Simulated assay, not measured.
Amino acid sequence: MPRRPASPCRVRLCRNLTRERHGYCEEHADHAKPWSHGRAGRGRGGRPWRRLRDQVMTRDRHLCMPCLRKGQATPAADVDHIVPEAEGGPTAAHNLEAICSPCHKAKTQDEARRARERAT
Protein backbone atom coordinates (compact mmCIF):
# COMPACT_ATOMS: atom_id res chain seq x y z
CA MET A 1 0.00 0.00 0.00
CA PRO A 2 1.45 3.41 -0.90
CA ARG A 3 2.43 5.77 1.87
CA ARG A 4 0.41 8.90 2.59
CA PRO A 5 1.70 12.02 0.92
CA ALA A 6 3.57 14.32 3.29
CA SER A 7 1.67 17.40 4.43
CA PRO A 8 2.66 20.37 6.60
CA CYS A 9 2.25 20.06 10.37
CA ARG A 10 -0.99 21.60 11.65
CA VAL A 11 0.86 23.72 14.23
CA ARG A 12 1.11 27.30 13.03
CA LEU A 13 4.58 28.29 11.80
CA CYS A 14 5.91 24.71 12.06
CA ARG A 15 7.79 23.84 8.87
CA ASN A 16 7.97 20.07 9.46
CA LEU A 17 6.16 17.59 7.23
CA THR A 18 4.14 14.62 8.45
CA ARG A 19 2.42 11.54 7.08
CA GLU A 20 0.33 10.96 10.23
CA ARG A 21 -3.49 10.95 10.01
CA HIS A 22 -3.81 13.47 12.84
CA GLY A 23 -1.75 15.98 10.86
CA TYR A 24 0.95 16.76 13.45
CA CYS A 25 4.69 16.16 13.09
CA GLU A 26 6.59 14.03 15.61
CA GLU A 27 7.57 17.16 17.54
CA HIS A 28 3.92 18.23 17.97
CA ALA A 29 2.21 14.80 18.13
CA ASP A 30 1.09 15.56 21.69
CA HIS A 31 -1.38 18.10 20.22
CA ALA A 32 -3.38 15.30 18.58
CA LYS A 33 -6.60 14.42 20.40
CA PRO A 34 -6.89 10.65 20.95
CA TRP A 35 -10.70 10.77 20.64
CA SER A 36 -10.78 12.69 17.37
CA HIS A 37 -10.83 9.60 15.10
CA GLY A 38 -12.91 6.47 15.00
CA ARG A 39 -16.07 7.30 16.95
CA ALA A 40 -17.06 10.46 15.14
CA GLY A 41 -20.68 11.32 15.77
CA ARG A 42 -21.19 8.73 18.49
CA GLY A 43 -21.21 8.90 22.23
CA ARG A 44 -22.69 11.18 24.82
CA GLY A 45 -20.88 14.44 24.49
CA GLY A 46 -21.14 17.85 23.04
CA ARG A 47 -24.00 20.19 22.41
CA PRO A 48 -26.45 17.72 20.77
CA TRP A 49 -26.34 15.41 23.80
CA ARG A 50 -26.68 18.29 26.27
CA ARG A 51 -29.73 19.58 24.40
CA LEU A 52 -31.36 16.15 24.33
CA ARG A 53 -30.51 15.59 28.00
CA ASP A 54 -32.02 18.96 28.98
CA GLN A 55 -35.12 18.18 26.92
CA VAL A 56 -35.59 14.82 28.69
CA MET A 57 -34.94 16.31 32.14
CA THR A 58 -37.53 19.05 31.49
CA ARG A 59 -40.05 16.52 30.15
CA ASP A 60 -39.58 14.34 33.24
CA ARG A 61 -39.69 17.40 35.56
CA HIS A 62 -36.19 16.56 36.91
CA LEU A 63 -37.65 13.56 38.78
CA CYS A 64 -36.37 9.98 38.72
CA MET A 65 -38.84 7.98 36.65
CA PRO A 66 -38.07 4.53 38.21
CA CYS A 67 -38.60 6.00 41.70
CA LEU A 68 -41.76 7.78 40.54
CA ARG A 69 -43.15 4.45 39.29
CA LYS A 70 -42.60 3.14 42.85
CA GLY A 71 -44.46 6.13 44.28
CA GLN A 72 -41.41 8.09 45.46
CA ALA A 73 -40.45 11.57 44.25
CA THR A 74 -36.64 11.65 43.96
CA PRO A 75 -34.60 14.32 42.15
CA ALA A 76 -32.93 12.99 39.01
CA ALA A 77 -29.19 13.35 38.45
CA ASP A 78 -28.74 11.62 35.09
CA VAL A 79 -30.48 10.67 31.87
CA ASP A 80 -30.32 6.99 30.89
CA HIS A 81 -31.53 4.75 28.09
CA ILE A 82 -34.67 2.75 28.83
CA VAL A 83 -33.56 0.04 26.38
CA PRO A 84 -29.73 0.07 26.46
CA GLU A 85 -27.81 0.85 23.29
CA ALA A 86 -26.07 -2.53 23.63
CA GLU A 87 -29.49 -4.20 23.36
CA GLY A 88 -30.56 -2.16 20.34
CA GLY A 89 -32.09 0.92 21.96
CA PRO A 90 -31.71 4.21 20.08
CA THR A 91 -30.44 7.46 21.53
CA ALA A 92 -33.72 9.30 21.09
CA ALA A 93 -35.97 11.16 23.52
CA HIS A 94 -38.57 8.37 23.55
CA ASN A 95 -35.89 5.90 24.78
CA LEU A 96 -34.42 8.15 27.48
CA GLU A 97 -35.59 8.89 31.00
CA ALA A 98 -34.40 10.92 33.97
CA ILE A 99 -32.92 8.76 36.71
CA CYS A 100 -31.33 9.26 40.14
CA SER A 101 -27.81 8.03 40.94
CA PRO A 102 -28.81 4.97 43.06
CA CYS A 103 -31.28 3.77 40.41
CA HIS A 104 -28.73 4.41 37.67
CA LYS A 105 -26.10 2.37 39.52
CA ALA A 106 -28.50 -0.53 40.11
CA LYS A 107 -29.72 -0.47 36.49
CA THR A 108 -26.14 -0.42 35.16
CA GLN A 109 -25.18 -3.39 37.35
CA ASP A 110 -28.26 -5.31 36.15
CA GLU A 111 -27.38 -4.57 32.50
CA ALA A 112 -23.78 -5.71 33.07
CA ARG A 113 -25.03 -8.95 34.67
CA ARG A 114 -27.32 -9.62 31.70
CA ALA A 115 -24.44 -8.94 29.29
CA ARG A 116 -22.21 -11.41 31.14
CA GLU A 117 -24.96 -14.05 31.01
CA ARG A 118 -25.39 -13.54 27.25
CA ALA A 119 -21.64 -13.91 26.74
CA THR A 120 -21.51 -17.33 28.41
Rank of each mutant, 00 (worst) to 15 (best):
Thr18Met: 12
Arg19Gln: 14
Cys67His: 05
Ala98Phe: 03
Glu85Gln: 12
Arg51Glu: 11
Arg51Cys: 00
Pro48Gln: 06
Pro90Ile: 02
Arg47Asn: 07
His22Asp: 15
Ser36Ile: 04
Gly45Leu: 10
Ser101Gly: 11
Thr108Asn: 06
Glu87Gly: 00
Pro66Met: 07
Pro102His: 06
Pro48Met: 03
Ala115Val: 01
His104Arg: 13
Ala106Leu: 12
Glu87Cys: 01
Gly89Ala: 08
Gly45Ala: 15
Arg3Pro: 03
Arg51Trp: 00
Ala98Ser: 15
Trp49Cys: 03
Asp78Gly: 01
Gly88Phe: 08
Ala119Lys: 11
Gln109Tyr: 00
Gly45Ser: 15
Pro34Ala: 14
Met1Phe: 08
Asp60Pro: 03
Val11Met: 13
Asn16Gln: 15
Thr58Ile: 04
His62Asp: 13
Glu27Pro: 00
Arg69Leu: 12
Asp30Trp: 14
Pro102Tyr: 07
Ser101Val: 08
Gly45Lys: 13
Arg3Tyr: 03
His31Thr: 01
Ala98Ile: 03
Gly89Val: 10
Thr91Asp: 04
Arg19Tyr: 03
His104Met: 06
Arg118Met: 03
Arg12Phe: 13
His81Trp: 08
Asp110Asn: 05
Arg116Pro: 00
Ser101Ala: 14
Arg69Met: 07
Val79Trp: 10
Thr18Tyr: 11
Arg53Asp: 02
Leu68Ser: 11
Lys33Trp: 06
Arg118Thr: 00
Ala112Val: 06
Gln109Ala: 15
Ser36Thr: 08
Gly89Met: 10
Lys105Tyr: 02
Gln72Leu: 14
Pro84Met: 09
His62Ser: 12
Pro48Cys: 04
Thr74Leu: 10
His22Cys: 15
Ala6Gln: 11
Pro34Ser: 13
Cys25Thr: 08
Ala6Met: 05
Thr120Ile: 07
Asp78Ser: 04
Trp49Gln: 06
Glu87Trp: 03
Ala92Arg: 13
Leu13Arg: 15
Ala73Val: 11
Arg12Tyr: 12
His28Ser: 04
His22Trp: 13
Ala73Gln: 13
His31Leu: 13
Pro2Val: 11
Pro66Thr: 05
Cys14Arg: 10
Glu26Lys: 09
Arg12Ile: 14
Arg47His: 08
Arg50Val: 01
Gly41Asn: 07
Ser101Thr: 15
Ala29Lys: 14
Glu27Ala: 14
Pro5Arg: 15
Arg118Trp: 03
Gly43Asn: 05
Arg113Asn: 07
Glu20Ser: 13
Asp30Ile: 09
Glu97Asp: 01
Arg21Ala: 15
Thr58Trp: 02
Thr108Glu: 02
Arg113Thr: 09
Gln109Asp: 11
Arg59Ile: 06
Lys105Gly: 02
Ala76Val: 07
Arg15Gly: 13
Arg19Glu: 14
Ile99Asn: 04
Ala77Arg: 12
Thr108Tyr: 05
